[in-house]
Write a protein that binds this DNA or RNA. Structure first.
Lengths: 206, 206
DNA sequence: TAGGCAACCGAACGGTCGTTAGGTTAGGCT
DNA sequence: AGCCTAACCTAACGACCGTTCGGTTGCCTA
């Protein structure tokens, strides 16, 4: 098989994953049927099974590819020498709101909660491959600041609780109540982010 | 129909709701079949339809009865004249951890997230009948304290974000990862509660 | 140009789902 | 005693699910 064909196949696969992720986010896992997926992708149900062994496998691919790379942003922030410690923290919070509230990666949480009983490996992978690394990346940014005297030392269990808690809950709330009321009136992302950031900086002694 | 019989019927119904709630919490909505429910309740599938019009109706009953009354605790704390403002806040935080992380009411959140697209009325009711009142109850406790000079004035959107965010996320995390690792090592409820409470009190200027 | 192979298709499969039809039982009321 | 009704049963329904089978297409390679 030549390169062009390989690329086309990869692209087709990525296209399916993107469309499927969208549908899963919209209707949940069990709320999304292979028939719907097929229609949305413009192929027949049977054709899925040339790309993925099962519906479960397709879902797992969506989840894994959804959050893969979302950690990189934090790592990049940490190693950006043009930023001060406080600026790094600000950038980190912004990127977390972006990746958890806005992008598919974080919005997958309720989906994973849905299937966590029947597919514990998915929840396990999400924890191991995403949450752990995200927490570690944030922790290192704080540790740098502490070493430099910019931040007060922290208990990281509690610090993570303070940082991730409001963001994840905001994401969940916006997913849950997406169809029932004026979302931005009840859950104004920008305002909450700003207030949240100020609290975090106060806790860090800035 | 006499009273004794009426009570027995109510009790039977409550029994079904309790069993169903348990199963729903364990397996999710679509992960719980009428056959499973029937087996767990010790009756036949068909017999459900004498008590509830449909699986949806049964679920809605479970949800509504799950969080009904969970708000009362906060109202009671506010009107307890033996407590200082700070003690009320401490009691309120404890009760929120209890009702959201431990009791069925709060643990229903992921379930509601699961069905929020297909049954938007459930999510709507959850928001209107539970979240709104819970937020209002907490707000009033803070306002009392502000009026008495015990607390600094607050922006309540942000304050709620700070208070509920970590609690809901902890509940969600514990649900999601219930089967995959040592829960209390990764999500130590008591420790996180204590740290969280201290941050809240600092924000209130205590 | 012949062969191979990935991609895709229509059609059907077995199974499970929520729901319903219709009959039986038990207990209180007249 | 006869009747009514709530509660429950067995059995089956139609719909839909994820999955599989067997065949067709069309590009790539030799």
């Amino acid at each position: 098989m030549d390169e062009a064909k390989k690329d086309a196949a990869k692209e087709r696969r990525a296209e399916i994953v993107a469309t499927a992720t969208e549908l899963f986010l919209e209707n949940g896992f069990s709320g999304t049927s292979m028939a719907q997926l097929a229609k949305a992708c413009g192929i027949q149900k049977a054709s899925f099974y040339h790309h993925f062994a099962s519906k479960d496998a397709l879902f797992i691919t969506c989840v894994n590819e959804g959050y893969a790379g979302a950690v990189q942003v934090l790592l990049d922030i940490r190693s950006d020498s043009s930023l001060s410690d406080v600026q790094k923290m600000e950038a980190a919070i912004h990127s977390l709101y972006e990746s958890i509230v806005t992008s598919p990666a974080g919005r997958l949480s309720p989906l994973i909660a849905e299937v966590s009983r029947t597919m514990p490996k998915v929840a396990d992978g999400f924890h191991k491959d995403y949450i752990t690394h995200q927490r570690a990346a944030l922790k290192n940014i704080v540790l740098d600041g502490v070493a430099a005297g910019a931040f007060k030392p922290q208990d990281f269990d509690i610090f993570h609780h303070l940082v991730f808690g409001p963001i994840v809950t905001l994401s969940l709330s916006r997913e849950m109540f997406a169809q029932v009321d004026d979302l931005d009136a009840h859950f104004p992302t920008e305002k909450l982010k700003q207030g949240h950031l100020e609290i975090i900086l106060r806790e860090l002694g800035v």
